[in-house]
Amino acid sequence: MTSVTLYALSGMVVVAVCVYGLVSYPHLIRKILAINVMGSGIFLVFLSFSRRVPGENPDPVPHAMVLTGIVVAVCATAFALALARRVHEVTRSSYLPEEQDPPEEAG
């Protein structure tokens, strides 16, 4: 196993763990964190691919695209956090209204 495969597999595991977190935990901040970290997993996979190309230097195009992706992820996270704050202001709850019985303790 090369280091490229190791990094890519780690990124995939991060993505899978985040899918579990996103589905299982109803707290909004946990969901936002799950999506944010999932993005980091995808960046890790993509960046590891930039080392797969033949030649001495890594491919600069994935690097540039991941930089762009980070900024878009920051924007989405900032907006999601603001929305979560707004939900809390309006409903006094950190859970979506569809969650009939939010767990008392953070699970």
Binding site: V15, A16, S50
Partner: peptide, 20 residues
Amino acid sequence: LALLLGWSVVTLPEPATGLT
């Protein structure tokens, strides 16, 4: 999902083509 994604990484075609 982890297994599926992992399988897709392991079976990537070699050698890779890039834009370098």
